[in-house]
Amino acid sequence: MPPHTDSPSPWDDAVRRATAATAAERPGGMDESCWDDVAMRGIVAMVLYALHLRERRAVDEIRWEAVLWHLRDDKHVEALVTAVLPGAGHDLTRTAPTGDPVAECWRWLTRTWDPNAPTKGSALTFMGPTHQPESLWVPDTPEFRWDGMSRGVGSGLPDPALEVGVNWAAGVVQSAITSESGGYGTHQRVKVKAGPLKGHRGYVRELGWVFNDEAQTVEGPAGYVVDLDDVEGLERLDADHLTRGRDHQWPRRPQGTLKVAPPPLRDPLPPRKTCGQDLEEILDRASNPEIVPPQLRQTIASAKEHHHLTLDAQATPAPQRFTWHVLMHWYQLTEHYADDQRADLYEVIIKRHLHDASPKHYLALREDDVPDLIARCMAAAE
C-alpha cells in the first residue's frame, strides 16, 4: 500500500497534531525531555499516521474518536500499526537500518528499559543488570536510564512505553475530544440537572464512551463518573443529566463520611501476618514450592519478623517478550537483627506482558541461582 501524500510529510503532520494534543493535556505543555510526554505523543502519532495510511485521508482529517478506539489497549495499537505500516514501506523489525523516523519511533515505543541504568550526569559506573541471564544480549556501551530523560509514569517498570503509556495516551485524546465537543474533563466541576440526584454538585472523575467496534470509533462522552459533594461513593451519570458547575469550592461534606476527612490516624491497623502465614502465601503462589526444604520452612515459621525487597526488574522486547521481577524475602530469626540470624528466600515473577493476569512465580534459595532460574523459566514458557 503506497503512503498517502496529500502532505509533504504525513508523519510530521501526525507528530505535530499529537504534540499539540499532548501539550494541551500536560501541565506546562509538551516536555521533550520527559519520557512520559514523549511516550504519549509517540503513541498518539503512530495511531494517527497508521489511520492516515489505512483510510487514505489527510492526518488532520482523522477523527479523534477513531484514534481513541484504537487506544483502548496496546494490543489494538500494535495490531493497527503492524498491519498497515509494513505495506507502506516501513520496516518495524528491531534489526532494521536506522533513518526512518516512523520505524524508529515504533522501536522506541516497543523497546524495554533497564530501571537500574545510570541516570544522565551520574558519575556511577554501569555495572549491568544484576540478575540478567548470560544468554541475553547486554549493550557494550551503557545507556542512560530512560534515554536520559526524566520519568514519572511507572518509573520503576522495565516494560515498553507502549504498554505503560497507552492509557495515558488515551487520556490525551479524551481531553482533545471533550475540548472540541464541549464535554467535561476530568476534575471539572459539574451540577446534576436531571434525574434523582438533581441539584447535587461534584467533580468529574472518569469519562464514559460507547465503543462502536464495527465502525472502529467511539461515541461520547456518553456519561461520567462523578464524585458528588454530599453523596458517599461515586455516581455514574448520563451526559445529558449534567451541566457545567459555576462554583469552584469544595463544599462542607457530611460528618461521618470518608469525604469529610480520611480515617483517623489512630485507628488500629490490621493485624500483621506472622512469618509462617507470610511463607504460606509465598508457597501457595509458587510453581516450585518443593524447593523449600522442611527445615527451612520450620525456621521461617518461627522467625520474629519478615521483610521484603525488590532487587531487580528487567524485560526483553518482542518477539521473546518477558518481564521478570526479583524479590528477596528475608526473615529475622532473633529479636535483634544479626547478619547470621537471618533466613532468605528469593522469588522470581515472570510475566509475558505488563498486565499479565497470570504471572508465574518461582523460588530460589540463593541469589546466585536466580539468573539460571530466569533463563530456564523463559525457555520453558516459549
Results as ranks from 00 to 15, higher is better:
Asp12Arg: 14
Ala14Ile: 06
Thr19Glu: 15
Thr19Trp: 02
Ala21His: 00
Asp31Gln: 07
Ser33Trp: 03
Trp35Gln: 04
Asp37Ala: 13
Val44His: 12
Met46Glu: 15
Glu55Met: 06
Ile62Gln: 10
Val67Ile: 08
Leu71Phe: 05
Asp73Trp: 02
Asp74Tyr: 05
His76Gly: 04
Ala79Cys: 02
Thr82Asp: 00
Arg94Thr: 01
Ala96Thr: 10
Pro101Trp: 11
Glu104Pro: 08
Trp106Lys: 04
Thr119Ile: 00
Thr125Gln: 13
Met127Cys: 09
Ser135Asn: 07
Pro142Ser: 02
Phe144Asp: 03
Asp147Ala: 07
Gly152Ser: 13
Leu157His: 07
Pro158Met: 09
Asp159Glu: 15
Pro160Asn: 12
Ala161Gly: 10
Gly165Glu: 10
Asn167Leu: 15
Ser175Asp: 14
Ala176Gly: 06
Ile177His: 10
Tyr184Asn: 08
Tyr184Met: 13
Gln188Leu: 09
Gln188His: 13
Val190Glu: 07
Ala194Cys: 06
Ala194Gly: 09
Gly195Leu: 05
Pro196Asn: 05
Tyr203Trp: 12
Val204Ala: 09
Leu207Ala: 05
Leu207Lys: 08
Leu207Asp: 02
Gly208Thr: 10
Asn212Ala: 14
Asn212Pro: 03
Asp213Thr: 12
Gln216Arg: 15
Gln216Lys: 15
Pro221His: 13
Val226Gln: 10
Glu232Ser: 14
Leu234Asp: 07
Asp238Ser: 14
Asp240Gly: 04
Leu242Asp: 03
Gly245Ala: 08
Trp250Thr: 14
Arg253Asn: 11
Gly256Gln: 08
Lys259His: 11
Pro264Asp: 10
Asp267Leu: 13
Pro271Val: 04
Lys273Gly: 04
Asp278Trp: 06
Glu281Val: 03
Asp284Ala: 11
Asp284Arg: 10
Arg285Thr: 02
Pro289Ala: 01
Pro294Arg: 12
Leu296Phe: 01
Lys304Tyr: 09
Glu305Arg: 15
His306Thr: 08
Ala313Thr: 05
Pro319Thr: 06
Gln320Asp: 13
Trp324Lys: 03
His325Leu: 14
His325Gln: 08
Met328Ile: 02
Glu335Gly: 08
Tyr337Asn: 08
Asp339Ser: 12
Asp340Arg: 12
Ala343Cys: 09
Leu345Ala: 09
Val348Pro: 02
Ile349Leu: 07
Ile349Pro: 00
Ile350Leu: 15
Lys351Pro: 00
His353Cys: 01
Asp356Pro: 03
Asp356Cys: 05
Ala357Phe: 00
Ala364Ile: 00
Asp368Met: 05
Leu373Asp: 11
Leu373Met: 12
Ala375Met: 06
Met378Arg: 15
Ala380Asp: 14
Ala381Cys: 08
Glu382Gln: 15
